[in-house]
Protein backbone atom coordinates (compact mmCIF):
# COMPACT_ATOMS: atom_id res chain seq x y z
CA UNK A 1 0.00 0.00 0.00
CA UNK A 2 1.26 3.46 -0.69
CA UNK A 3 -0.27 6.70 0.43
CA UNK A 4 -0.02 9.75 -1.82
CA UNK A 5 -0.60 13.20 -0.38
CA UNK A 6 -2.65 15.29 -2.81
CA UNK A 7 -4.06 18.39 -1.00
CA UNK A 8 -5.76 19.84 -4.08
CA UNK A 9 -8.99 21.78 -4.40
CA UNK A 10 -11.65 19.73 -6.16
CA UNK A 11 -12.77 22.78 -8.15
CA UNK A 12 -9.21 23.95 -8.96
CA UNK A 13 -9.75 23.66 -12.72
CA UNK A 14 -12.90 25.80 -12.56
CA UNK A 15 -11.21 28.35 -10.27
CA UNK A 16 -8.19 28.62 -12.55
CA UNK A 17 -10.34 29.35 -15.61
CA UNK A 18 -12.52 31.73 -13.57
CA UNK A 19 -9.39 33.72 -12.69
CA UNK A 20 -8.41 33.87 -16.37
CA UNK A 21 -11.96 35.01 -17.22
CA UNK A 22 -11.77 37.73 -14.56
CA UNK A 23 -8.45 39.04 -15.92
CA UNK A 24 -9.91 39.08 -19.43
CA UNK A 25 -13.07 40.90 -18.27
CA UNK A 26 -11.06 43.50 -16.35
CA UNK A 27 -8.65 44.00 -19.23
CA UNK A 28 -11.65 44.85 -21.41
CA UNK A 29 -12.75 47.37 -18.77
CA UNK A 30 -15.93 45.43 -17.99
CA UNK A 31 -17.79 45.17 -14.71
CA UNK A 32 -19.23 41.64 -14.53
CA UNK A 33 -22.10 40.41 -12.38
CA UNK A 34 -23.22 36.83 -11.74
CA UNK A 35 -26.98 36.86 -11.10
CA UNK A 36 -28.27 33.95 -9.03
CA UNK A 37 -31.82 33.16 -7.88
CA UNK A 38 -34.55 30.52 -7.82
CA UNK A 39 -36.41 30.00 -11.09
CA UNK A 40 -38.95 32.79 -11.55
CA UNK A 41 -37.55 35.38 -9.13
CA UNK A 42 -37.05 37.88 -11.91
CA UNK A 43 -33.41 37.71 -13.02
CA UNK A 44 -34.26 38.29 -16.66
CA UNK A 45 -36.84 40.96 -15.79
CA UNK A 46 -34.27 42.81 -13.69
CA UNK A 47 -31.78 42.70 -16.57
CA UNK A 48 -34.44 43.93 -19.00
CA UNK A 49 -35.44 46.89 -16.84
CA UNK A 50 -31.80 47.73 -16.15
CA UNK A 51 -31.07 47.72 -19.87
CA UNK A 52 -34.00 50.05 -20.54
CA UNK A 53 -32.63 52.60 -18.06
CA UNK A 54 -28.88 52.27 -18.67
CA UNK A 55 -28.73 51.50 -22.39
CA UNK A 56 -27.94 55.10 -23.33
CA UNK A 57 -25.21 55.38 -20.69
CA UNK A 58 -23.42 52.03 -20.85
CA UNK A 59 -22.59 49.30 -23.32
CA UNK A 60 -24.29 46.26 -21.85
CA UNK A 61 -24.03 42.59 -22.83
CA UNK A 62 -25.63 39.48 -21.38
CA UNK A 63 -24.71 35.81 -21.08
CA UNK A 64 -27.84 33.79 -20.38
CA UNK A 65 -27.74 30.37 -18.73
CA UNK A 66 -30.67 27.97 -18.88
CA UNK A 67 -31.21 24.24 -18.77
CA UNK A 68 -33.23 24.46 -21.98
CA UNK A 69 -34.43 27.02 -24.58
CA UNK A 70 -33.14 30.40 -25.72
CA UNK A 71 -36.29 32.21 -24.55
CA UNK A 72 -34.33 34.53 -22.23
CA UNK A 73 -31.86 35.41 -24.98
CA UNK A 74 -34.78 36.36 -27.23
CA UNK A 75 -36.07 38.77 -24.57
CA UNK A 76 -32.67 40.45 -24.28
CA UNK A 77 -32.11 40.47 -28.05
CA UNK A 78 -35.45 42.28 -28.46
CA UNK A 79 -33.91 45.19 -26.54
CA UNK A 80 -31.03 45.45 -29.02
CA UNK A 81 -28.36 44.25 -26.62
CA UNK A 82 -25.68 41.64 -27.42
CA UNK A 83 -26.58 38.32 -25.83
CA UNK A 84 -25.20 34.77 -25.84
CA UNK A 85 -27.35 31.89 -24.63
CA UNK A 86 -25.75 28.93 -22.84
CA UNK A 87 -27.98 25.85 -22.78
CA UNK A 88 -26.66 23.47 -20.14
CA UNK A 89 -28.79 20.48 -21.19
CA UNK A 90 -29.55 19.48 -17.65
CA UNK A 91 -26.64 20.90 -15.65
CA UNK A 92 -27.93 22.89 -12.69
CA UNK A 93 -25.30 25.66 -12.73
CA UNK A 94 -22.93 27.53 -15.02
CA UNK A 95 -19.21 26.90 -14.69
CA UNK A 96 -16.20 28.96 -15.71
CA UNK A 97 -15.55 26.90 -18.85
CA UNK A 98 -19.07 27.51 -20.21
CA UNK A 99 -18.70 31.24 -19.57
CA UNK A 100 -15.24 31.33 -21.18
CA UNK A 101 -16.62 29.71 -24.35
CA UNK A 102 -19.72 31.94 -24.45
CA UNK A 103 -17.62 35.07 -23.99
CA UNK A 104 -15.67 34.25 -27.18
CA UNK A 105 -18.75 35.46 -29.07
CA UNK A 106 -18.59 38.84 -27.30
CA UNK A 107 -14.84 39.33 -27.51
CA UNK A 108 -14.93 42.00 -30.24
CA UNK A 109 -17.76 44.05 -28.75
CA UNK A 110 -17.21 47.14 -26.63
CA UNK A 111 -18.77 46.33 -23.22
CA UNK A 112 -18.80 48.17 -19.86
CA UNK A 113 -21.30 46.01 -18.03
CA UNK A 114 -21.72 42.25 -18.44
CA UNK A 115 -24.56 40.35 -16.82
CA UNK A 116 -24.17 36.59 -16.46
CA UNK A 117 -27.59 35.15 -15.65
CA UNK A 118 -27.06 31.80 -13.95
CA UNK A 119 -29.38 28.80 -14.11
CA UNK A 120 -32.31 29.27 -11.71
CA UNK A 121 -31.04 27.52 -8.58
CA UNK A 122 -30.03 28.79 -5.13
CA UNK A 123 -27.76 25.83 -4.29
CA UNK A 124 -25.20 24.79 -6.89
CA UNK A 125 -24.23 28.19 -8.40
CA UNK A 126 -22.90 29.21 -4.96
CA UNK A 127 -19.88 26.92 -5.41
CA UNK A 128 -18.80 28.04 -8.88
CA UNK A 129 -16.71 31.15 -9.51
CA UNK A 130 -17.30 32.27 -13.11
CA UNK A 131 -14.84 35.17 -13.10
CA UNK A 132 -17.37 37.77 -11.98
CA UNK A 133 -16.64 40.82 -9.83
CA UNK A 134 -19.57 39.96 -7.60
CA UNK A 135 -22.48 37.64 -7.18
CA UNK A 136 -25.93 39.21 -6.89
CA UNK A 137 -28.61 37.07 -5.27
CA UNK A 138 -32.22 37.86 -6.11
CA UNK A 139 -35.26 36.69 -4.18
CA UNK A 140 -38.84 37.67 -4.73
CA UNK A 141 -41.47 38.31 -2.09
CA UNK A 142 -43.58 35.42 -3.39
CA UNK A 143 -40.89 32.94 -2.28
CA UNK A 144 -41.32 33.72 1.42
CA UNK A 145 -39.02 35.41 3.91
CA UNK A 146 -37.22 32.25 5.08
CA UNK A 147 -35.14 31.70 1.94
CA UNK A 148 -31.87 33.22 3.25
CA UNK A 149 -31.94 30.72 6.13
CA UNK A 150 -32.70 27.79 3.84
CA UNK A 151 -30.00 28.59 1.26
CA UNK A 152 -27.32 30.34 3.31
CA UNK A 153 -24.28 29.71 1.09
CA UNK A 154 -25.45 31.85 -1.80
CA UNK A 155 -26.35 34.69 0.60
CA UNK A 156 -22.95 34.45 2.23
CA UNK A 157 -21.13 34.41 -1.12
CA UNK A 158 -23.02 37.36 -2.65
CA UNK A 159 -22.27 41.05 -2.19
CA UNK A 160 -25.70 42.29 -3.20
CA UNK A 161 -29.25 41.13 -2.45
CA UNK A 162 -32.07 42.32 -4.69
CA UNK A 163 -35.56 41.72 -3.27
CA UNK A 164 -37.92 41.73 -6.24
CA UNK A 165 -41.74 41.89 -6.57
CA UNK A 166 -42.20 44.29 -3.65
CA UNK A 167 -45.41 45.45 -5.36
CA UNK A 168 -46.91 42.06 -4.37
CA UNK A 169 -46.27 42.42 -0.63
CA UNK A 170 -49.94 43.23 0.18
CA UNK A 171 -50.98 39.92 -1.39
CA UNK A 172 -48.38 37.46 -0.10
CA UNK A 173 -47.39 36.12 3.28
CA UNK A 174 -43.96 37.71 3.35
CA UNK A 175 -42.41 40.25 5.69
CA UNK A 176 -39.65 42.23 4.01
CA UNK A 177 -38.01 43.12 7.33
CA UNK A 178 -37.74 39.39 8.06
CA UNK A 179 -36.06 38.75 4.70
CA UNK A 180 -33.54 41.48 5.48
CA UNK A 181 -32.94 40.33 9.06
CA UNK A 182 -32.45 36.73 7.93
CA UNK A 183 -30.15 37.73 5.08
CA UNK A 184 -28.01 39.94 7.35
CA UNK A 185 -27.67 37.12 9.89
CA UNK A 186 -25.92 35.14 7.13
CA UNK A 187 -23.97 38.06 5.64
CA UNK A 188 -23.91 41.34 7.53
CA UNK A 189 -22.14 43.10 4.65
CA UNK A 190 -24.89 42.57 2.05
CA UNK A 191 -25.94 45.63 0.07
CA UNK A 192 -29.72 45.40 -0.29
CA UNK A 193 -32.10 46.76 -2.91
CA UNK A 194 -35.90 46.48 -2.73
CA UNK A 195 -37.38 46.61 -6.23
CA UNK A 196 -40.33 45.80 -8.43
CA UNK A 197 -39.65 45.11 -12.09
CA UNK A 198 -43.38 45.70 -12.70
CA UNK A 199 -43.95 49.03 -10.92
CA UNK A 200 -40.26 50.01 -11.39
CA UNK A 201 -39.99 51.01 -7.74
CA UNK A 202 -36.37 50.89 -6.60
CA UNK A 203 -34.97 50.18 -10.09
CA UNK A 204 -33.38 53.63 -10.37
CA UNK A 205 -31.42 53.13 -7.13
CA UNK A 206 -30.15 49.77 -8.40
CA UNK A 207 -29.13 51.34 -11.72
CA UNK A 208 -27.35 54.23 -9.96
CA UNK A 209 -25.40 51.67 -7.95
CA UNK A 210 -24.39 49.82 -11.13
CA UNK A 211 -23.32 53.08 -12.79
CA UNK A 212 -21.18 53.89 -9.78
CA UNK A 213 -19.63 50.40 -9.83
CA UNK A 214 -18.85 50.55 -13.55
CA UNK A 215 -17.27 54.00 -13.21
CA UNK A 216 -15.15 53.06 -10.22
CA UNK A 217 -13.99 49.82 -11.84
Amino acid sequence: MSLITVERKILEKNDEIANINREKFRFKGMFTLNLVSSPGSGKTSLIEQTIKILKGKLNIAVIEGDVQTNLDAQRIDALGVSVVQIVTNGACHLDAMLVRDAFQKLINIDINLLFIENVGNLVCPAAYDLGEEMKVVIISTTEGDDKPLKYPAIFRNSEVLVINKIDLIPYVNCNIDTIIMNALSINSGLKIFEVSCTSMEGINEWCEYLLYKVKSQ
Binding site: M1, S2, L3, I4, T5, V6, I10, A127
Partner: peptide, 20 residues
Protein backbone atom coordinates in the same frame (compact mmCIF):
# COMPACT_ATOMS: atom_id res chain seq x y z
CA UNK B 1 -21.30 39.92 12.84
CA UNK B 2 -17.87 40.99 11.66
CA UNK B 3 -16.54 37.47 11.26
CA UNK B 4 -14.50 35.67 8.61
CA UNK B 5 -14.82 32.02 7.70
CA UNK B 6 -11.83 29.94 8.80
CA UNK B 7 -13.05 26.46 7.86
CA UNK B 8 -16.18 24.84 6.50
CA UNK B 9 -16.03 25.67 2.79
CA UNK B 10 -13.44 22.99 1.93
CA UNK B 11 -13.79 20.86 -1.18
CA UNK B 12 -10.42 19.11 -1.31
CA UNK B 13 -8.80 15.86 -2.30
CA UNK B 14 -6.48 15.08 0.60
CA UNK B 15 -4.85 11.74 -0.19
CA UNK B 16 -4.99 8.64 -2.31
CA UNK B 17 -4.10 5.13 -1.22
CA UNK B 18 -2.89 2.74 -3.92
CA UNK B 19 -2.87 -1.06 -3.88
CA UNK B 20 0.71 -1.94 -4.83
Amino acid sequence: ANVEILTGTELKVIEIELND
